[in-house]
Computed example of a mutant assay.
Amino acid sequence: MSTKTIFIIVLTILLTIFLMVNTDPVDFNFLVTTVAVSKLLVVGLCIVIGFILGFIVGRPRKTVKNLDAEIERHSAIENKKALSDEDRDYIN
């Protein structure tokens, strides 16, 4: 197993233990109402929302620089296809 996998498993176990210990009801104020909700639900929901936001913010964006690199890579592939048999033999 890789270090990343072990880290994710340990983090998941610790998070599960943390959630299971905090099951007491708490008063949750939302706008004008107060609702008694389990800490497990509140903390779990915050964790899920945090993971979703982290995924959205952390994913790579398509930028002009990335597109230019893709165009150059594609051009190199096309140029390689345009080589004659003699050129390919020489390169290999």
Rank of each mutant, 00 (worst) to 15 (best):
V64K: 15
C46Y: 13
S38D: 09
T3K: 15
N66A: 15
G44H: 00
H74E: 14
N29E: 13
I91V: 07
A76E: 07
L53M: 12
L14Q: 00
I49C: 12
A69D: 13
L14W: 01
M20C: 13
T23G: 07
L31M: 09
M1Y: 10
N66G: 14
L11D: 01
F55Q: 10
T34P: 01
T16Q: 09
D85S: 03
D68E: 11
F18Q: 00
D24C: 08
L83W: 05
K81T: 04
V21L: 08
P25W: 04
L15Q: 05
V32L: 14
I8E: 07
G50T: 06
F55A: 13
A76N: 04
P60K: 05
F30V: 07
F51G: 07
K62I: 12
I91G: 02
I91S: 02
L53G: 02
T16I: 07
R61C: 06
L45S: 13
A82E: 02
N66C: 11
R59Q: 11
T3Q: 15
F51E: 03
K81L: 09
R59W: 09
I8D: 03
L19H: 00
L41S: 06
S2G: 10
V57R: 10
S84K: 00
I47S: 08
D24R: 14
V42L: 01
N29T: 12
L40V: 04
F55W: 13
V42K: 00
N22C: 00
K65F: 10
E78N: 12
I8C: 03
L53F: 06
C46S: 14
E72I: 09
M1R: 08
L14I: 03
D85F: 10
R61F: 08
